[in-house]
């Protein structure tokens, strides 16, 4: 069966739900509203069946505790401030690590895009170090910076640096040469070429790099905290394993997921705000 006819069949099935709803409850629902409802309901349906299976003994609650017990643990962790403290610790590290990585990445990336010799010099360094899994650098960082905040922040910074730097180079190279001629013709200083042409021209690419960097930073901060920290969401998840507090582990994972989602929504909004001139949005 071709993919298309499979989709058609699915469409027919979902449509029949609409017909049923209309017949049973006498509600008239447009397909858009119906799909929206299904999207909102599906996680709840999953949670409800999970709850039922856990209570009914179909699931091993040592690994898959019932959502209701996870929820009561969540309330406890919020009340005691544990969740907030750990979330705050992770977010602070992510924030400083992001700044520490993003600012040099922008400067280096744009400079590389503008000056060929610099590109020739730094390109091999990036090509050589980029494939190293960032997590594999953690032991070295712990060695250099110790168990304090610095090692975690640097870990995030390294993860953030690469996607932003690489995208900034590509972004500047993508700028139509005519804009640089315009800058030269109007006698723009080097600083003004950077500020009014290279940076805004490369910004669409840079924003993609920023989004990738934020995602990478979140992964790395959780990872780094598992090994070398006494606070943070990564530490919380690891600690939950050590004391076999599975509910706490789920809460840690859930919090990371929510933060990741919120950051991506936020960066999309930021992009819309910074790049009002992009056609395709």
């Amino acid at each position: 069966m071709s993919a298309r006819s499979r989709w058609n069949e699915r469409a027919a099935v979902t449509d029949s739900w609409g017909i049923t709803l209309r017949r049973v409850a006498n509600i008239n629902i447009t397909p858009a509203v119906r799909d929206r409802l299904i999207s909102i309901l599906s996680p709840f349906v999953l949670l409800a069946s999970w709850e039922a299976c856990a209570v009914g003994g179909l699931l091993d609650t040592r690994f898959f505790p019932a959502p209701s017990t996870v929820f009561s643990t969540l309330v406890k962790l919020i009340e005691t401030g544990v969740l907030w403290d750990n979330t705050w610790a992770s977010m602070t590290r992510l924030f400083w690590g992001f700044l520490l990585g993003a600012i040099p990445a922008l400067a280096v990336g744009i400079a590389m895009g503008l000056y060929r010799p610099l590109r020739a010099a730094i390109d091999p360094l990036i090509a050589l170090t980029y494939p190293i899994p960032k997590s594999a650098i953690l032991p070295l960082l712990l060695l250099i910076f110790g168990l304090g905040e610095a090692s975690k922040i640097v870990m995030v910074a390294i993860g953030v640096f690469y996607p932003i730097c690489i995208n900034a180079v590509a972004g500047v190279l993508e700028i139509n040469k005519i804009y640089l001629d315009v800058g030269k013709n109007f006698q723009a200083s080097r600083w003004n070429v950077f500020r009014t042409i290279a940076l805004p021209g490369a910004l669409p690419f840079i924003m993609s790099g920023v989004k990738l960097g934020i995602g990478m930073g979140l992964i790395l901060i959780v990872l780094a905290e598992m090994v070398g920290a006494k606070s943070g969401l990564g530490y919380m998840i690891w600690h939950a394993w050590e004391i076999l507090a599975v509910e706490m582990m789920y809460i840690g994972l859930m919090t990371v997921a929510v933060i990741g989602y919120a950051l991506s929504v936020l960066s999309n909004e930021l992009e819309r705000w910074i790049l009002p001139w992009k056609v395709d949005r």
Binding site: D181, V182, F186, Q187, T196, P200, W277
Partner: peptide, 16 residues
């Protein structure tokens, strides 16, 4: 300024 150029094709900055 000694000169200013009107270029062939699109040369105005799309971000301004």
């Amino acid at each position: 300024p000694s000169n200013a150029m009107v270029f062939q094709g699109d040369s105005i900055f799309p971000w301004m």
